[in-house]
Design a protein around this nucleic acid. Structure first.
Lengths: 202, 202
DNA sequence: TTTATTTTCTAAACACCGTTTAGTAAATTT
DNA sequence: AAATTTACTAAACGGTGTTTAGAAAATAAA
């Protein structure tokens, strides 16, 4: 049945059209200004049409999150180039942080916002992030003998949590409490990350 | 002028009435269900009245955040009891985490949500958090010679960032990527915190 | 080719939200 | 007792996510 195939293809193309528009708006005008209505406007369809392809906004955002993770992964592949696992770990943390600083709205969607996670609220998994999580775990395993940890999972969790803590506190303006000017705050963040890396080396 | 005094007093009482209602709703039904309209309902005034006492929702939330920080401070004073600064640091991190796990919606307001920070967006300060930040800094300074850091500020930033990273990744469901059941995730979080404390000791 | 059926789309409405405006009622001053 | 200031709210504005009922287009059947 050729027609059924084409219809299925067209359906997928429409879904792609929607999330691409959403992604573009996310980067250009930010999360707050990205509404179902504004996405519909951009692709020149009515808001109701979007609901023929996505059950609700959460589901749509989950798919956009997936795209954002693809971008993060490309960023990792570009930035994490060393052969030595310990060096790779340093590069990974740095790449994680630069991504967050460069695309705060995508970072929000990936690691802070509640909405996109409602799609996996029932499950004990989160496939969107699998690749990047394994990327981290593999690197840590590769140099676990050079780290002051016995369990790779704990080691990975400290690094991720610290990186996320630094970026999210900055993005949400909480380092203001230090009363430092923005540029000194950024410097402190990098020093903190560096200090942690030095700390975990055996 | 006695009447002016009473009027001023009544104005402050009304402001208190509003933020107390907001705080209660925050804890009982969560942020999402706490609207200006629902707060107005609770205190049996019209929504418009709230705008006679607060310029907008952000300003109101900033005040509720202040109350939340008072609660955090009381929690600290109750939990951080040791005399030894290093022990105090451990207790502080643990207290920070237990507060976040016990009151995720207040934690949101204090450390994650954008809205309340709009009140201090222009400034390079954040008075609501001053007391708790100094609490941390003072403890770190008290044991800096026993830590593998030279700068107390960097030491403090690692601890805060790690604690925040752990709690916020958990609250927003991101540790799901590990595919562990909830109870094992919690165990991992505590082990991660403990590992970090061991790591920073000289 | 014409009719019937299925699929695709949207206008309009619903129920919420934060916020403003215009006007009423109460308290205070003259 | 009248004039003025203060405290309050009903109603509206423009926004949100989402649903419904019906039109238009594409496909299948006659």
């Amino acid at each position: 049945m050729g027609i059924t195939d084409r219809k299925e293809r067209e359906k997928q193309e429409m879904r792609k059209l929607i999330i691409d528009a959403a992604m573009e708006m996310f980067i250009e005008v930010g999360y707050d200004k990205t509404s179902i209505r504004s996405i519909a406007d951009k692709i020149e369809y009515s808001p109701a049409t979007i609901y023929l392809y996505y059950k609700d906004k959460d589901e749509l955002l989950y798919e956009v999150q997936g795209e954002a993770f693809d971008r993060l992964h490309k960023h990792f592949l570009k930035e994490v180039t060393a052969a030595d696992p310990l060096e790779r770990l340093e590069q990974l943390l740095a790449a994680y942080m630069t991504f967050g600083l460069k695309h705060p709205d995508l970072y929000d969607l990936m690691f802070i916002l509640r909405s996109p996670m409602k799609a996996v609220e029932e499950e004990e998994a989160w496939p969107n992030c699998d690749k990047e999580y394994n990327f981290l775990i593999d690197i840590v395993k590769g140099c676990i003998d050079k780290l002051r940890f016995t369990d790779p999972m704990i080691a990975a969790t400290t690094i991720w949590s610290l990186g996320h803590g630094i970026i999210s506190l900055y993005i949400r303006g909480r380092y203001k409490v230090s009363k430092l000017p923005d540029e000194q705050i950024k410097e402190m963040m990098w020093q903190t990350a560096k200090a942690h890396i030095e700390l975990i080396k055996r």
